[in-house]
Design a protein around this nucleic acid. Structure first.
Length: 385
DNA sequence: AACCTCGACAACCGCAGCCGC
DNA sequence: CGCGGCTGCGGTTGTCGAGGT
């Protein structure tokens, strides 16, 4: 494993460690302690630099290192801590006995990060990557006929900061037009090809938008949908409050009938959920105040009709919480406070459920519930992965 | 069977912070 | 206070091996 031995530098060996070297290092440290890493290799008779010795000891030879597969609990903890700490691998490792920062980092990059990306979650910010959504697909497949519903959605999910305002304007414009079209159809009892019309309208509206931009004239659409108006008013969200067993809220249509959005956030300001595009992992958290009762007043996008189309809004973990707990979901932070879905709530969100899972599929499956944000199949984001 | 692709992971590299002089 | 050495951290690289074609 690792790199092949490369040329010596100052007579010092590099590359993978041999069993003999390992034994020398272990013996020396057991007898003398590591002391000064710089002088250790010389004293131990190793043709290695101190840095290499330290790394080998810290990441591989240390007796308290736990080898082997990460348990689901560990995986949970990593995700939780990363959502709070970002890439502070050493700090995360301090919370995971027997695991090294390097090991956690590698595991994150090779497993968790990819899984998050697959689910449409930005592994840096832990927020949905709605900037990657193919809004055209949404339009074409959506039965939504209300632009306000999209506004509710965007405000609720805080995507206005992620979506190009012009594109959002175009979307809402189109949805409004589509609504009018449908009303006209109902009146006339005509059933034209909506898809074709939608596509044609898209092109038409694009031209309109371009012309409007060129002329710097605001028509009814652009003036109606200024970016700063994309945020969802609290009352709008409260209007869509439903129980987990009630009928889908109006904007569920936006999800093509396969998804329901359940929200119960009267007491939580949805604008707080807006994530920053800033790549700093904790910035949005620093700027966001999640009510302590967010657990109860959480935003749900439920799984429905057998689809795995779930949205998730993560609340801010309580940094004072004991991350070593075996029962994250009873705690008031992180994914434990994340909004569950009706389907997931029917299945106990107990970390032990999959504790013995040994396959990636099972982990993926459980993470789908845990992370609760998957990009619908209709949203083609594979090209971004 | 040969080749290719990709996941996994050990190890390296560069930088920043700490600390002693 | 400035400088230099040491340590630790995070990002990245390079190789191996398994699976697919």
């Amino acid at each position: 494993m690792g790199r092949a031995p490369c040329c010596d530098k100052n007579g010092l060996k590099k590359g993978p460690w041999t069993a003999e070297e390992d034994q020398i290092l272990i013996d020396y440290i057991q007898k003398h302690g590591h002391g000064s890493w710089r002088t250790l290799p010389k004293n131990a008779g190793l043709q290695r630099c101190g840095k290499s010795c330290r790394l080998r000891w810290a990441n591989y030879l240390r007796p308290d290192i736990k080898r082997g597969r990460f348990s689901f609990e560990e995986e949970e903890t990593i995700i939780q801590l990363h959502s709070v700490l970002g890439n502070k691998w050493s700090t995360i490792a301090a919370r995971l006995p027997g695991r090294t920062d390097n090991e956690i980092k590698n595991y994150w990059n090779t497993h968790i990060r990819k899984r998050l990306l697959k689910m449409g979650i930005d592994p840096v910010t832990h927020t949905p990557r709605l900037d990657l959504l193919d809004l055209g697909s949404i339009l074409r497949s959506s039965l939504c006929n209300s632009s306000n519903q999209l506004m509710n959605m965007s405000g609720l999910l805080g995507i206005q900061s992620l979506v190009n305002p012009d594109l959002m304007r175009l979307v809402t414009t189109l949805l409004s037009s589509q609504q009018q079209q449908q009303q006209q159809q109902q009146q006339r009892e005509i059933k034209p090809d909506l898809l074709l019309q939608t596509l044609q309208q898209t092109q038409l509206l694009k031209h309109q938008n371009q012309n409007q931009n060129q002329n710097q004239n605001q028509n009814q659409f652009s003036s109606s949908f200024q970016p700063n108006q994309l945020q969802c008013p609290i009352q709008d969200i409260s209007a869509c409050t439903t129980s987990s067993t009630s009928s889908p809220p109006p904007y569920a249509q936006f999800l093509n009938g396969t998804q329901q959005l359940q929200c119960n956030v009267e007491q939580s300001n949805p604008t707080n959920l807006i994530s920053s595009q800033n790549s700093q992992p904790n910035l949005w958290q620093d700027n966001v105040v999640i009510p302590s009762n967010f657990m109860e007043n959480s935003v749900h996008l439920s799984q429905n009709h057998g689809c795995h189309d779930q949205f998730f809004v993560n609340s801010l973990p309580d940094q004072n919480s004991n991350f070593q707990s075996n029962d994250y979901f009873n705690q008031d932070f992180g994914f434990g406070s994340v909004l569950s879905t009706p389907s997931s709530s029917q299945t106990p969100l107990n970390s032990s459920t999959y504790m013995n899972s040994s396959t990636e599929d099972e982990r993926d499956s459980y993470c789908s519930d845990l992370l609760t944000f998957e990009i619908p199949d209709m949203l083609d984001i594979n090209g971004f992965m």
